[in-house]
Design a binder for these strands. Sequence first.
RNA 1: GCCCAGGUGGCGGAAUUGGUAGACGCGCAAGACUUAAAAUCUUGUUUCCAUUGGAAGUACGAGUUCGAUUCUCGUCCUGGGCACCA
Length: 856
Amino acid sequence: MSQYNFKSIEQKWQAQWIKDDLYRVEEDESKPKFYSLDMFPYPSGAGLHVGHPLGYIASDIVSRYKRLNGHNVLHPMGYDAFGLPAEQYAIQTGQHPAITTEANVKRFREQLDRIGFSYDWTREVKTCEPKYYHWTQWIFSRLFEHYYNKDEHKAKSIQSLIDVFEREGNNAIHAHTSQEELFTADQWISFDERNKSDVLNRYRLAFVDETTVNWCEEMGTVLANEEVVNGLSERGGYPVIRKQMRQWSLRITAYADRLLEGLNTLDWTDSIKEIQRNWIGKSEGAEIEFKSTDGNLNFSVFTTRPDTVFGATFMVLAPEYEGLENLCSAEQKEEAVHYANAARNRSEIERMASTEKTGVYTGRSVINPFTNKEIPVWVSDYVLGGYGTGAIMAVPAHDDRDFEFARAFDLSIIPVVKPLQGELPEKLEEAFSAKEGIAINSAELNGMHVKEAVEKAIALIELKGIGSKKINYKLRDAGFGRQRYWGEPIPIIYNENGIPTLESNLPLELPKVESYKPAGTGQSPLAAVSDWVNTSKGTRETDTMPGWAGSSWYFLRYMDSNNSEGIASPEKLNYWNQVDLYLGGSEHATGHLLYSRFWTKFLHDIGIISWDEPFKKLVNQGMIGGEDGQKMSKRWGNVVNPDDICDAYGADTLRLYEMFLGPLTDSKPWNTQGIEGVSRFLAKFWRLFHQGEAFNIDEAAASKEELKILHKTIKKVSHDIENMSFNTSVSAFMVATNELGNLKCTKREILEPLLILLAPFAPHITEELWILCSKDSSVHTADWPMHEEHYLVESSFNYPISINGKTRTNMEFPLDADRADMEKEILANETVQKWMEGKSPKKVIIVPGRIVNVVI
RNA sequence: GCCCAGGUGGCGGAAUUGGUAGACGCGCAAGACUUAAAAUCUUGUUUCCAUUGGAAGUACGAGUUCGAUUCUCGUCCUGGGCACCA
């Protein structure tokens, strides 16, 4: 066989590796472990295009490299199999989503198999299988049974909370809770079942709540914040409105601070960390109470600028403000309530479209506790109900939004901060919202810089007993119920008193239904299955879990994917531990990546795992665009199918080319023409091992030059893989092959190590050549070669000689040449003389092994 | 508007701590082999001026330095994220 016949080679070795179970991995204490993970795909009907395997190829190269370096590598793959497309297809066709999903999985598997990945498929997971979602439901159940203790900074059992309530009520307990009323032990004991359940619900990490949700009428379901883009549903682009609904939620806000702190320990890109930081949105400030003269009204507001309190000339309440209708004056009540109702029901789109400030006066006033002046209370939709206290003190002189509002309704504007340099204009044309400045018109704060004034203001607020320092987060609790069929049933039964209790018999399987259409009433299709809903213990919850439930812990399941006793055995969890390298797209920054961190921290708290961050290192691969520069999609007709590339060029060429295209993390366009380059390279590489028709390598000793080529390649490729710089390793292979080809090198001493180096990138061709080298075991079980520096060191260097920083000539000197001798010789050089034009040099800079610069 | 990342040939891109800008590949041009094509090989290919040889050049403008794609400041542009979060 003289021609490189990739087709037969690739088929042969893929079959052989399956037969040999080559990629099967077991726990092995004698080797260091390495866990390399790809974000598992949603098996869509469209199949894979060449953009999908980019990250898979990169992580496969790292996995193979680590194996060759003596690591025990866990490199699994699976499917995120619950989701909307299969369900929508079911609604249209009546086809059960499980059937479509299975067909899609089969197709994905065929496509993946052709590319020659080293996955241990015995560990495959599919989130839609009962043996998998058994444990998704189990984790939900544990969340239901725990609350967050702020003193211990961890989740604790609800039973331990009940014990405290029975002993001493809830006064002393420091929990993350929406429970505001205090009760004593006696009161707790006297509560009825309903009352107790309601109180505990306010502590549980999985809880039901009447909340404002993103309701999508078209899809008949609630969406999570990240499933809403610009007021439209991410899938389908349907309008989304805000609606009050009873909803299961997870108390992720309890973990806000730990989620923020944990980021500092992770090897992730700054941009992803920054996105999560902004999403969590921590801000420090103060809560201040404002009261009416008669004491009947009492509002708490949150502000990050307590130093501007002297400039608070009015107050604004959110339309959602609780008890709004009862606090308005008789004359204003109708108008204000009408406004608030209208504002509450506006869709996100309408809300965002309006830039004009609107609002209504409540007819009431409160006293600014610092100026002692009466200030009016307004209601406006620019204040958000879900953030802070839902009420603000408005400081129009120093906040753009308050300024606009004051302008619109002719409210007074009093400046209380001036710039560090200069003065404020006589009449403000815009708010002075800089975070630096000097306090004015603010009594004892006058003359202080903002930072100092903030501290002082908080001290005064605390002294007056009207508030305290406070930290707020933008992060909201995560809605966890979907009115959908194709998801994990929430394992909750409401007993005869309507009290939620856990289903004890897991997995709670998804029943068959007649129709997959949501009822549109806010209930899932499961509500129609009466013999499933009605049990001897009560009625079942009919909502299912959101798409991110199953993906929040799948990386743990791979460790022990068939375990029926728990999510995985403690030994295996402990052995494989954190994911060492996680590869996937950056689009999951605020969804999957945040929820996985949350669940990991929770599982850590309840003692299931010993670490509390799931992914040590995260790398986001870029997108591969179409050849026309647009996004690769059916819509533009620019989709390139990896199967076609495998047919025409082979899997090894596809793998090399995807890596050669550019840096892994960059987005770049696909170019089928460019693939010829790596295709030629592999053919050339093949020819290195052949003489005409015959395979040909010999045992002669390698020359110094050949050894240098080999060792510089070992050094470069090892370094590049460690740094995820795969495009430059491919070019290093090309350089080595060109150079060895020019030398007509046929030596085993050189070519065999080269095969091992290339094996992670091009596993098939290297295996074939390896076996032709008369080896009796796979190249993928060989030992990675070590580079020896002494082959690389030179005795002399061809110095670029520059005059005033511009290179003019080159001169060869031994590396240990004497500086003075060098200088003498350089200055005597003809070209140097010419450029010096008879002047004498001011300075001669000699950097050994680098450069010479003559300054004149 | 705010926050992050990035701007290098016709194209994808390269340049370990500041040290010969354009590696490697695509494309293009010319040539060898061939009846021809494919395959393969050789040579050239940043721009401008030119006879040897020069000049400019890493988005733009400044600065630090013997020396800047690399460091600092400002401006412009592109991509991504957030978006009335007080």
